[in-house]
Nucleic acid binder design. Sequence first.
RNA 1: GCCCUUGUAGCUCAAUCGGCAGAGCAACUGACUCUUAAUCAGUAGGUUGAAGGUUCAAGUCCUUCUGGGAGCACCA
Length: 498
Amino acid sequence: MSNSPQKPDRFEQARLEKAEKIRELGFDPYGQRFDNHQAIAAVRPLCPEEAGAEGETVRIAARIMGRRKAGKLRFFDAKDATGRIQLLMSRGDMTEQQWELVSALDLGDLVGIDGKLKRTQSGEVSIFVEELTVLCKSLVQPPEKFHGAKDIEMLLRQRYIDLIYNDGVLDRMLQRSKIIDSVRQTLRGQNYVEAETPVLHSVAGGAAARPFTTHHNALDIELYLRIALELHLKRLMVGGVERVYEIGRVFRNEGIDATHNPEFTMIEIYQAYGNYETMMDLTEAIVTDAVKAISDTMVLPWGEEGEGSIDFTSPWPRRKYAELFQEAAGCAMSDTEAVKQIAQSKGIETEGKHPDVIVNDLFEELVEDSLEGPVFVIDYPASICPLTKRKQDDPNIAERFELYVKGMELANAYTELNDPKLQEELFLTQLEGQDEEDSMAKMDTDFIRALKVGMPPSGGLGIGIDRLVMLLTNSRSIRDVIYFPLLRPEGMPAAGEE
RNA sequence: GCCCUUGUAGCUCAAUCGGCAGAGCAACUGACUCUUAAUCAGUAGGUUGAAGGUUCAAGUCCUUCUGGGAGCACCA
């Protein structure tokens, strides 16, 4: 891409001329510090009910969203992060210099306003402007005032346009912040401490996913961006940090769709001397607290208006993996031949695969999408869970649960494996039918060394924060809850050109 | 990666069978002191994503490239 500045279009040219006019009037088109302004949402209720009655003097800072003229009157719609309010500027109430300044205003400009709250004759809450301060001249023509901006590509590449001009976008992102605050608060209340562990890993472990690779120049080594938080947090458990969590970005070099972004936010939580059952209780606490943080009710809408809902009232059902499998497939998951036949009838590749991998493929095909939830699926086949402690009375079953809501996996938790010898063995054992890069079993010798020192028996829990926010804000796409989802860069030269 | 679909003015969208590229909003000039998708009169605004091809004639048909979206695959 060229580094030379873009030639201004006709709109930018006109606005630059207005900026110059503002300078000639003795003002700064890009503004200065503007103290003691009030939130529009706080100011609106102060307006007198009776039309024409003079209310309090207020000061706001806002963006100009709309404009109407009626002779020597100017009505503007102004908006800040909290709400909208109408501004009224009258030729008769302003100095000559201020009136000239009004004529240099455009849609999209940021202004500081001092004036009195008063209702217009039609009853609209308004600020009758006494002093106008230009805080920033906008050089860009805003989208159409009625239909707004709809081009998804533009809205994602220029998310600020989306945030300014599309109602609900900023609100949803602020809800995301509230949800994350709530998660931290719940954990703080139970004496968990937040940790920050490395993003750059020499072994990308803790999950089954393709990593991004990068390179450190001074050490001249290949590094991976982390795909999970697990192995470092467990090292902290070894070190005596008994209740620990991290909220952080993880990176997986895989496809992009409505529920997957290459970088996404996970929380992983570890509790010494707990197990997967204590983590189920914690999951319920975290999610229900988050619901309370953004809603007055435990039943949240899902889908189009009136189409559906999610009832987060706890406790949530806990269903055994094997039972759900049997109900859906009509055979026991230990019946290897029957499982294979059903899998083949569903078009699932079975050749060379470990029986438990086939069972899991079938489970995903038959069961997952139908789990409306919230529901805990518990007790997974051990062979697909290499980091999990087995049940004491059945070594084929792992103490693991996944939480499903609306067919989406929201949380995943284990009773953590703390036997270093067994862990080492599981790292070495590739499940048949899995490519090495698809496998979770990547040898991490430093992690084994840590386990030998001794890690308490523990519960571990991971929650996909983006998915939690999606479910709580009725968002069908992960792009609705991430400010800047990954897009292909603009303006790359076509292959073979240049 | 596969397949389908889409890209027209700053924005939202038209353009019939291949036949003069258009509207609304926004902008600009003017009128109007209570509007709120304000109204009224006028003006200007285009490399139809890019390159090539077919044709007397291409926004429209064909090829390649490119950005976006939906689905599939992978995955959480």
